[in-house]
Structure formats: structure tokens, C-alpha cells
């Protein structure tokens, strides 16, 4: 038998969905393999939760009980914010991972293979979504554990909206992550350099977090920051998650009353984040298409 016959049979290429799966598997394997990513995934939410609850817990505990009810602990208030922090960290790594692939030549190697172009990015996006969902689950469990330890076993209300709320939390985290992942990819493709991309990402990441409802109720922020918080997507992501955790309409930057209860928070949040997803996702898609296209101009 000739080599050519074997070649024809061996080089069949895959269907689109198999290409997605192959890409997805590689990114997950890399994430698990990369010690620093695993470490960060487990440790950073833990550190954030401990530090913030210890430092701000006493200070914010009282006002939070005044605002949201006597049975609401600062840990419960903070957990949605830490989920958002974690999701944003993964999103930052999404962009840097792409730059790494370009630097290492793996990106080009994949482009020369019969892998479908769209599958290259969909597979990576799905891997990131899975990581974000997984890490969100870790944060939810961590928050519960801290409450349990802090309260000596009597946790009280944690996720007020039950199992549907848990699924809702995952859904909102994913809707939230998309815009920031897209942003991270745009920065990555514009800078084409891991160091400058990281600087840009962290420079946006922290101001966004602190000028939002993430760590303290909006009313604690100075006036000018409250204005920022109104247009800050972090506020909407955190408030939507918090609405599901607390079972209350917690959105305080704009007053929506068209729906009932927690939907007055969730609907505007999803609309705003969805629009952001489409705009930034669209820009990212155009840029990705450009780098993977074989046309020189």
C-alpha cells in the first residue's frame, strides 16, 4: 500500500463540532496543567473573601443589615462580588492565552491545520465559560463555608432564590463574562504583547471593581463615584447576582419598577450586559477574523 493511500485516509479533518471539542479540551488541559492558574483559581477567591469580610465586615455589617435585612451577613453580600472578580480574572487570562498561542506559534500551527476557523475561537470561549462556571461554584461553596464557620454552624439564608437562583447565577456570570472576555481579546489583539495587555487589563479591572456596588453598598461611595457606578457594568453584574442571592431588588443606581421583585434588577442588568456583549463581541469577532484570515489586506 502506498503512503498516499494512508495519507488520504489519515488526513480526513474533523467536523465543526469535533474541532470545537478538540480545541476546548486543549485549553482545559492547559488550565489544569498550569499550576499558577489552578492556584489562582482556588486561592484568590479565598483570599478576597477572607480579607474583605475581615476588614470591612464589622464596618459594613450594620448598614448592610439595615439595607437588606437583619439576617443578611456581609459574606452573603460579598460573595456575588467575588464571583465577578473571579470571572474577570479568567477573562483576563483568555486574552493573554491567545497572545501566548500567537507567540508560541501554536496559533499559526492550528491555522495551517484543517481545523475550522470558527471552532478555534468557539472552543476557546467554551473552555473559558466552563472555567468561569467552575470557579463561580467554588466561590459559592467557599462563601457558604465561611458563613458556616463564622456563625458556628447556623448559616441562615444563603441563596434565597433556591436551585433556580443557582442556575440563574451561572447564567448571569456567563452573560457578564462575555463582554469582559471580548474586551480582553480586543486588548490582546491590539497590544499583541502579554505584559502590556496585562497592564491594560488590570488597570481597567480594579477601577471598575471599586467604583461599583461590588464591595460596599453604593450609598457608601462618594458622589462622583456613584455616578461612575451608574454606568459601570460591574454594578449591574454584581447587583443581578446579589438579587438572586438575597431574593431582593437590590439595583440602586437606577430605579426600575416595571417588573416585579428581583426582576427589577435582573432584567435591566441583562439588557445592559447583553448590549455590551454584542458590541464588544462583535469588535472582537472582527479582529479575530482579521488575524485568522489569509488575506494580506
Amino acid at each position: 500500500m502506498s503512503t498516499t493511500d494512508t495519507a488520504e485516509r489519515l488526513a480526513a479533518g474533523n467536523s465543526f463540532s469535533v474541532d470545537v471539542w478538540v480545541t476546548l479540551k486543549r485549553w482545559l488541559k492547559k488550565a489544569v496543567r498550569n499550576a499558577s492558574i489552578v492556584f489562582e483559581a482556588l486561592l484568590s477567591p479565598f483570599i478576597f473573601l477572607i480579607l474583605f469580610t475581615q476588614v470591612f465586615g464589622k464596618l459594613a455589617g450594620g448598614p448592610i443589615q439595615d439595607l437588606f435585612g437583619a439576617d443578611i451577613n456581609y459574606i452573603t453580600f460579598l460573595t456575588p462580588a467575588i464571583i465577578i472578580v473571579t470571572a474577570m480574572t479568567v477573562a483576563i487570562q483568555s486574552g493573554t492565552g491567545l497572545i501566548q498561542d500567537m507567540d508560541s506559534g501554536m496559533f499559526e500551527k492550528i491555522l495551517v491545520s484543517p481545523t475550522h476557523r470558527g471552532a478555534i475561537f468557539l472552543g476557546k470561549a467554551l473552555a473559558d465559560v466552563l472555567r468561569i462556571a467552575f470557579q463561580s461554584a467554588i466561590v459559592l461553596v467557599l462563601g457558604y463555608l465561611l458563613l458556616w464557620i463564622g456563625s458556628g454552624g447556623s448559616v441562615g439564608p444563603y441563596i434565597q432564590t433556591g436551585l433556580g437562583g443557582v442556575l440563574g447565577i451561572f447564567a448571569i456570570v456567563i452573560v457578564y463574562s462575555l463582554w469582559f472576555t471580548a474586551f480582553s481579546i480586543i486588548i490582546a489583539l491590539v497590544t499583541q504583547d502579554i505584559e502590556s495587555a496585562s497592564i491594560w487589563m488590570y488597570m481597567t479591572h480594579y477601577p471598575l471593581l471599586f467604583s461599583s456596588s461590588a464591595f460596599l453598598p453604593i450609598s457608601f461611595l462618594p458622589e462622583w463615584m456613584q455616578v461612575l457606578a451608574t454606568v459601570n457594568p460591574v454594578t449591574y453584574g454584581v447587583d443581578a447576582l446579589r438579587a438572586l442571592m438575597l431574593g431582593q431588588d437590590v439595583l440602586s443606581v437606577i430605579n426600575v419598577t416595571a417588573f416585579s421583585g428581583i426582576w427589577n434588577t435582573i432584567v435591566p442588568a441583562i439588557v445592559l450586559l447583553g448590549v455590551l456583549d454584542i458590541v464588544l463581541g462583535g469588535i472582537a469577532a472582527v479582529l479575530l477574523h482579521r488575524v485568522s484570515s489569509s488575506q494580506v489586506d
Binding site: 489519515l10 488526513a11 480526513a12
Partner: peptide, 12 residues
């Protein structure tokens, strides 16, 4: 990974 990418059959 390269095998999977090029669709080399699992059995081979």
C-alpha cells in the same frame, strides 16, 4: 493534539 486536530482516527 496534532493527531486530534488533523482527525487521525482514534484507533490509529
Amino acid at each position: 493534539f496534532a493527531c486530534e486536530m488533523y482527525g487521525v482516527p482514534r484507533s490509529k
